[in-house]
């Protein structure tokens, strides 16, 4: 299997009203990592206002997702998340079968986000 670079999410801007709790990436767009051993998630998030960008994973369709990384507003041009199927790793660093993003927004204020996510997969 060849290495691959996948856009987990193209550049996207979202804005939410007060009381809107956020949004989850739609199921057909989640990325399945079967056959790969390591992955790097590159997050560019020039705006995360009153919201957190969460990258999360799950091993079984229909199973519970666990947080792999939670990005908040920062001055960094990009943030990276390293994932691997091989030990040693902590809970947050294990490469899951399915990867998706979620916006966890404040319920008490308007929020707006602009971000893109790249996924580099190595066999």
């Amino acid at each position: 299997m060849a290495d691959a670079v996948v856009e987990l999410q193209e550049l996207l801007s979202l804005r939410g009203a007060t009381g809107v709790a956020g949004v989850i990436q739609e199921m057909p767009l989640w990325v399945e990592t079967t056959g790969y051993t390591t992955a790097v998630v590159r997050s560019e998030h020039p705006m995360l206002g009153n919201a957190t960008l969460v990258v999360e994973g799950c091993d079984v369709q229909g199973g519970a997702f666990t947080t792999l990384a939670a990005f908040t507003q920062s001055a960094a041009a990009a943030s990276y998340l390293y994932l691997s199927v091989s030990a040693p790793y902590g809970t947050a660093e294990r490469l899951p079968t399915l990867i998706r993003w979620r916006i966890d927004a404040s319920l008490v204020a308007e929020w707006n986000v602009t971000f893109r996510l790249m996924l580099v997969l190595k066999a």
């Binding site: 057909p28 767009l29 989640w30 790969y36």
Partner: peptide, 24 residues
């Protein structure tokens, strides 16, 4: 929407859509 692979064949990096009825 199909998986957009920028480099490599990405044969295993599939979107998970085939197993879900939401986007038929």
């Amino acid at each position: 929407m199909a998986t957009r692979v920028l480099q490599g064949t990405g044969a295993g990096a599939t979107r998970s859509g085939s197993g879900f009825p939401a986007e038929g």
